[in-house]
Design a protein around this nucleic acid. Structure first.
Lengths: 228, 228
DNA sequence: AGCCTTATCGTCATGGTGACGAGAAAAGGA
DNA sequence: TCCTTTTCTCGTCACCATGACGATAAGGCT
């Protein structure tokens, strides 16, 4: 059943998938294999199916584009973008989702993507209004790290305090004091829980391993330095 | 031009319009004059027009439902809701917007609304999935007051520190110490700027009047008490 | 004048944070 | 073996923001 007398839209989901690689924040981008904007880089995404909820569509696209659907990581709605001229094919509203993943998956090209790659954020020139969507996602991620324990979503199930700190440093783009960060991470209730195990074989003193804690919010928050 | 081969959607905007009346947080609700859910309370909203951007649709609906479109207040996107069965008429995705207004406007019934009223938040039984949307909006408002100076959007252009404090108390639902709040509001850079004028004729000592400052974020933030 | 009410300013203890020092625990080389 | 390097972990100290108050200012009211 279709509502008559009102404008008709197509609805897509687009994904801002972030990970930390080699100390820098990267986003998953695809090179478009079809028009419009063929051969240009864009966010992965696609049309919402006829009987599909929005979060389900986001998870489906994430699985198709990364090959990983299981637990680990984090997925949340970022916002919707629906300017009349944003897609030359017609009136398309996109619901953007934001995902945090550990640096495990190797991207695989999907159906309408010629190529998929992790690329450092901050570059411009994406198709449609994806520059803006990506920038909004990065800013949301920076803010989320302040008052949630979601930095652990960028890490494997067991991680060191140093790995967690490197996530903050990559996302915020500024160095943090390892000693103060260690104190904060281990003293904030529910942020991390020790597993008892330690790393071995690396350089330097072995580090204790932690899992994500059960807190959903950091209390008190871990605020970044605000420039005057 | 319509994209063929993909599902067809209708897109609406729904508004969570909040204000503070008599010390309590209220939302603007309308009693539906048409099916579905005729005679039930719902959020104001309507269909996005063929050549209309999403924020423009939200502002238009806000003007139609409240009779006030000018400056003052605050409007931001809240999120999108698109479960397949959320509207019995068909596949409808709604983009919810969140507005903060001072307690000036008297609501007027719109075209498809039999009645419009300010009603205290926290009541349930709204049409569609509007209970959820309203709850999300209230939670967003509570959080926004922590990190932004948007409490002033609930106040008239010139206001006292006590009025600003009553906004926090109404939105958060907890009392604040007037002396500590006064210190915080006047010492946080860019939160409020004194006008030089004072109230007169009220009970108690006259209070200095302030305008909203030029800060977009509170630094440091004004965190609410977290229950353990 | 007294009293009530609200606004504004101070004081004090506590706790979180930034800036560091210092020891602990591994690997690797002379 | 001993020393250096590296990284992790624990302490110390000063400062600042905050919660919990007391005290004073400045109006209206009886």
């Amino acid at each position: 059943m279709v509502i008559t007398g009102f404008p008709v839209f197509a609805v897509t989901v687009d994904l801002v998938v972030l990970t930390v690689r080699e100390g820098d924040l990267h986003a998953l981008l695809v090179r478009r294999g079809i028009e419009p904007h063929r051969d240009r880089w864009a966010l992965p995404g696609g049309f919402v199916l006829a009987d599909e909820d929005l979060p389900a569509a986001a998870r489906r696209e994430l699985a198709e584009e990364t090959g990983i659907a299981g637990p680990g990581g984090h997925l949340e709605q970022l916002g919707s973008y629906g300017a009349p001229e944003r897609d030359p094919r017609g009136r398309v509203v996109t619901v953007a989702y934001l995902a945090f993943l550990p640096d495990l998956p190797a991207p695989t090209a999907g159906s309408d993507a010629a190529e998929a790659q992790w690329r450092p954020v901050g570059q411009r020139g994406l198709a449609f209004d994806h520059d803006r969507i990506l920038a909004d996602g990065v800013e949301r991620a920076r803010s989320k790290l302040e008052y949630t324990p979601l930095a652990a979503a960028f890490c494997p199930p067991e991680f060191t305090i140093a790995a967690l700190r490197q996530v903050y440093e990559a996302v915020w783009g500024e160095p943090l004091d390892p000693r103060n960060f260690h104190r904060k991470a281990t003293s904030t209730p529910g942020f991390v829980t020790p597993t008892g195990a330690s790393t071995e074989g690396g350089t330097g003193r072995p580090a204790r391993l932690f899992r994500q804690g059960d807190a959903r919010m950091l209390n008190p928050p871990l605020l970044r330095r605000r420039p005057d």
